[in-house]
Nucleic acid binder design. Structure first.
Lengths: 202, 202
DNA sequence: CTTGACTAGAAAGTGGTACTTTCTAAGCGT
DNA sequence: ACGCTTAGAAAGTACCACTTTCTAGTCAAG
């Protein structure tokens, strides 16, 4: 199909599609002449993926590019689908020098105590560290025990996440990444609803 | 204290503080002359709150303004702290006309079936509706039963949330709002870590 | 075979957000 | 009295996600 058809089918303007092509979010079509290219269903799907990640997922172009790179990678080491996916999800953060010695590595030691697998330079743990620290700064104190309570609950969430991925599937990476991103707003809304439900009836 | 001291204490530039004053995120100081005003600890705290919500919470100025308005409101109807807080958190969304009749009100009926309190025009349910629909569009199918599984887990999260709020506290609204926003990145990181832990050892 | 719609590709422009800079007129402080 | 600071307003900046405008070429109907 031509670019105008692609635009109609995806409800994305031709200009935006060209922008995605330039940005490498969308592979070029098969060129049939110097001014015409042929696009197919894979392009439709890709555009829908980009829109889903940017609109609902709230991701920026850079994050989407990383995710797409992972999805497009030919048969990655299946062993570490999750690590790969999570690497794409956690953008690199420049390691700011810690100013308070009191809470250095608090997240890391909590994760270790919890028995969850991690290693040095774990970007997800770094994220947790920052988020936890930010809570403290904002006056929302979270003790280790409370974190454990949250962890118990979130393990349940993760169990559902993992169960939803068909093991050994061809597009496991895609499902993990897209599912992780797209379900976040769902879980967020559920949390608000659950807060209500809990507080209404003890 | 003067504005320069406020800037030093909060590590926020004088220019930015003036910007916050203009935007109504920060109440003006007590003016001591036409070119000098006196700020106090409440200003320090307020600025830290704004930074926490924008930096870690990822909120925009508009959302922060809504939240601040709620926090500043004098003794709101204590009955509905949560509703007020959640209203501030869910920015207004223009109700887009639904195009597919198939899934209209899917979230609403699921919430009703779940027995969670809601009503017509519930913004949180609308959010869930959108997020759920976006998942389907992106090829991440979520059946009602899976949503129930997530809901069970998230109820646990909410229990911890609710337990952390001292009942009848003076600043309950503040704690609920700030806690809800600031803990989101924490929970997000926990989810990734839990996914790993679960998938590694069944 | 012409005419109008479409296309690729690149460059420049736009609107929104969150500040930052620059300005003036006026204290303040040593 | 001289430089440092301030309030307040206006204009400017950087970044992001597009959108517009351009050229040069192609295609399809009449």
């Amino acid at each position: 199909m031509r670019i105008s058809v692609l635009a109609t089918r995806t409800e994305v303007s031709v200009g935006t599609i060209k922008f995605y092509l330039r940005e490498g979010l969308l592979p070029p079509g098969r060129q049939t002449s110097r001014t015409t290219a042929e696009y197919d269903e894979s392009h439709v799907e890709r555009i829908r993926l980009v829109r889903a990640l940017t609109d609902a997922g709230g991701l920026g172009i850079a994050a989407v590019r990383r995710i797409i790179a992972v999805i497009d990678a030919p048969d990655p080491q299946r062993l570490d689908v999750l690590a790969t996916a999570q690497d794409a999800l956690t953008g690199r953060v420049d390691p700011e020098p810690d100013d308070s010695a009191a809470s250095v590595g608090r997240a890391h030691s909590w994760v270790a105590a919890r028995g969850w697998p991690t290693g040095p330079g774990d970007r997800v743990v770094e994220r947790l560290e920052r988020a936890w620290e930010a809570c403290e700064q904002a006056g929302v104190h979270v003790e280790d025990s409370m974190m454990d309570d949250y962890a118990d609950a979130v393990e349940q969430v993760a169990r559902v996440d993992v169960a939803a991925v068909p093991p050994g599937a061809d597009d496991a990476v895609r499902r993990v990444v897209v599912g992780t991103v797209m379900l976040e707003p769902v879980l967020s809304a559920l949390r608000l609803l659950a807060q209500r439900a809990i507080s209404v009836q003890g």
